[in-house]
């Protein structure tokens, strides 16, 4: 199996690695995956007063594709509104990174991470959202 150039680029130069204070009111944190499955992704978004995502950070335990998928979404969500971020689909991630079929689950996880981070942010702000 060989990785695409884009996966390798994100893997070797991951964007926005790090953490925000998860107790910060402007921060939404999503942690998805399980160690036993070989992938755990933590995605954090920092949302401005205007509802626009100002910044994002990730930490990922997982294969090259998982790291690349999470690195990519930190770039993608920045500058988007929370609502816009919610429209990012795993298929877009998989396509952008040219993920092989056995690695599609990494992009699914990244989409889930966005949703989890947004859900956490909304919860802090008392917004209700359906499950």
């Amino acid at each position: 199996m060989s990785y695409s150039a884009k996966v390798i680029d994100h893997y070797e130069n991951p964007r926005n690695v790090g953490s925000f204070d998860k107790d910060d009111a402007d921060v939404g944190t999503g942690m998805v995956g399980q160690p036993t499955c070989g992938d755990v992704m933590k995605l954090q978004i920092k949302v401005g007063k205007d509802g626009i995502i100002e910044d994002a950070r990730f930490k990922t335990y997982g294969c090259g594709s998982a790291i690349a998928s999470s690195s990519l979404v930190t770039e993608w969500v920045k500058g988007k509104t929370v609502e816009e971020a919610m429209t990012i689909r795993n298929t877009q991630i998989a396509e952008e990174l040219a993920l092989p079929p056995v690695k599609i689950h990494c992009s699914v996880l990244a989409e889930d991470a966005i949703k989890a981070a947004v859900a956490d942010y909304r919860k802090k702000h008392g917004e209700n959202q359906g499950e």
Binding site: V17, M31, P35, V40, K42, K59, T60, Y61
Partner: peptide
């Protein structure tokens, strides 16, 4: 490990 959420949690003393 700098990139690993598991390592971060372990460093914070969380039993995984």
């Amino acid at each position: 490990r700098d990139m690993s959420p598991l390592w971060e949690m372990a460093q914070a003393g969380i039993d995984l």
